[in-house]
Design a protein around this nucleic acid. Structure first.
Lengths: 364, 364
DNA sequence: CTGAAAGCGCTTACAG
DNA sequence: CTGAAAGCGCTTACAG
């Protein structure tokens, strides 16, 4: 929270700075080398090959039952855990998927990640989460990171990196699904999941127009899905012969929304409705409106986009666009897994449109 | 959101089920083998050793300037990116840290992760995030995962796994920092970061008592930090000669809070104040109270714990306990990095207490 | 049924 | 200044 004005914090703070307590210099943790297959081989008198075969349950099992048991017991006794780095190097597979998102503190992404991770888990894949901050620099770091071979597949939501750059950097057999903002033409290279952001924004704008609003401003940023949402807004406004206005923000956060709205409210503010490009912006806008003494929705109606959990908790509850991020995450993970584990049945380059719904509450 | 009662969703859903568009069967993506150091060696006529030396900028550089340039150019031209798996295997270092949390959709954890990741990034470490769901099964999966050597260090928030089990599973040189709920006695093995949950809960309870409340219920679950918070609540109540009552929940989510409160409200509900063990529970409780027609705070006061972003957006805004999760994440990451990169100057087993503050708003 | 051997791509002594 | 060699821990043909 960067908006202390609306809160009434009262410090009752105990120990201020973190201070160490205790810490008698014990001997360092047993630097016991992790047992390897070789250790098990030595312990059982079998070859390391046999150990590998048994531990990986290679079918048909060509190792005698007696030997199998001895090996399994030794593995148990020594606390053997396979070294994934070695396995990864050898097999050129990491059994790990990545989920690249712009901002983990925007509640819409944890939902996506949850869905992704649950499907990945079920298929035996670990999940790595990479937060790009929505900046070009960090998106390119994510790209570099992908190129290093940490994962077998990735679900990526980029604001700045495009398909060409993605393909150029991540050569080789990585499975990719991209979250995009509109129905791209099939590229033959990368699977896409998306909702029709322009259509959703257009529909929401139409709702505002139908309620009689004529001076509507969109609070937005042309990054990421913002561009398409602006397009939809413009289309609806033009169709109704109204002039679309924009209040620019530099980020999709609550703070950015509050800042931009406060600046706008300081001047002449002719709008009867504000359509924010996402819920965090809408929440920031609502805070600024309230600070400026405007009633919602009587003086100014507000609509958002995403339906994050907080949207329905606000007073007035926020009118917004819902999509099922969790389902989308699960869907994308399943797509990746099918490509990696499947009989290569599916070819990339497809587009998968996901549904959205308008959620009409009290703020508009 | 699992609480459709308070919302007014209205479907305007376009294409229902995800349907594939396009996808002409192009030739599969160039399965170009990623170039290796060996490829660069062959291309330049140098040895693979020399390539490794140059690319890793080993000081002092024992390779002639001319050779260096040729190697660097070839690397550039071929698009060489080091294979991290190979490097990891060889060096037994992954340059990756893990952040294990119970629930990424609880906004308090993304804040922790953000702080952690920013510090890790700055030091050149990647971050893996593991969501345990707060269940014993998935916490043990996290443990297994740690044992496989994916990371050099970890910040772990466990509800069920204790220090002994952690140490037993994760042998060898992994750096560990645990988020715990109270000042453990220094163990000589694992660094701990914590706030004094009991003191915080006691202070918040005292605030409620000072406001004249006598029948106060704590909405809680004895898992994780819940136990300590209950302890603090009990201490304050006992000290005031009031009897502490509990409303049990099975999870730290909004849905669980709403469910438990609704059940309680269906019967005789003698409480004038509810202290929820975290903000999500408090938000759920507020929804249930509102549904039951109780005014907040006039009929029932509500207090929470965490100060998640939504807390100050509610009406009435939520009285709660704030801690700086972001600072804590950053602090923990720095601790790990110091242990991994540092001159081994610090010994584990220390405890680092973090501050908290009471944030008094309108809900109590 | 079993083991010796090659190799995944890299780092790091070590010998010229 | 440079390269041959060993080895990280594993998987997987291949030969007995």
């Amino acid at each position: 929270m960067k908006n202390p004005k609306t809160s009434t914090p009262k410090a009752a703070a105990p120990p201020a700075a973190p201070a160490a307590t205790g810490g008698k210099p014990k001997p360092p943790r047993t630097p016991t080398r992790r047992p390897t297959q070789r250790d098990i081989a030595v312990a059982t008198g079998m070859s390391q090959t046999a150990v590998s075969l048994v531990l990986n349950r290679v079918e048909p099992c060509t190792v005698s039952e007696d030997a199998r048991q001895r090996i399994l017991q030794a593995a148990q006794r020594l606390g053997y855990v396979p070294n994934r780095m070695a396995r990864n190097l050898q097999s050129a597979r990491t059994h790990t998927l990545a989920c690249i998102v712009p901002d983990i503190t925007n509640p819409t992404y944890p939902a996506l990640i949850r869905g992704f991770q649950s499907a990945a888990d079920a298929a035996g894949y670990d999940t790595m989460i990479f937060d790009t901050d929505g900046t070009p620099e960090r998106e390119r770091r994510a790209l570099q990171w992908l190129a290093q071979g940490h994962v077998d597949g990735v679900l990526a939501t980029f604001f700045h990196v495009d398909e060409a750059e993605l393909l150029e950097t991540v050569r080789g057999g990585m499975a990719i699904v991209q979250v995009v903002s509109q129905a791209y033409k099939p590229s033959g290279e990368i699977d896409k999941v998306y909702i029709d952001n322009a259509a959703a924004a257009k529909a929401m704008t139409q709702v505002l127009i139908d309620k009689g609003h004529e001076r509507i401003a969109m609070l937005s940023c042309p990054m990421g899905p913002g561009a398409e949402r602006q397009r939809g807004f413009q289309a609806a406004m033009r169709k109704a012969r109204l002039s679309p206005c924009f209040i620019a923000v530099d980020d999709f956060t609550q703070a950015a929304g509050a800042r931009a709205m406060a600046a706008e409210l300081a001047g002449d503010f002719p709008y009867s409705a504000v359509f924010a490009a996402n819920d965090l912006l809408a929440i920031g806008a609502m805070a600024a409106l309230r600070t400026a003494g405007r009633r919602i929705p009587e003086d100014v109606a507000v609509a958002g986009f995403d339906d994050i959990p907080a949207a329905q908790l606000l007073l007035p509850a926020l009118t917004t666009v819902r999509r099922s991020e969790q389902a989308m995450g699960r869907f994308a993970a399943d797509l990746l897994i099918a490509r990696l584990d499947g009989p290569d049945a599916n070819r990339p380059g497809r587009g998968f449109e996901q549904p959205f719904q308008l959620v009409l509450r009290d703020s508009a």
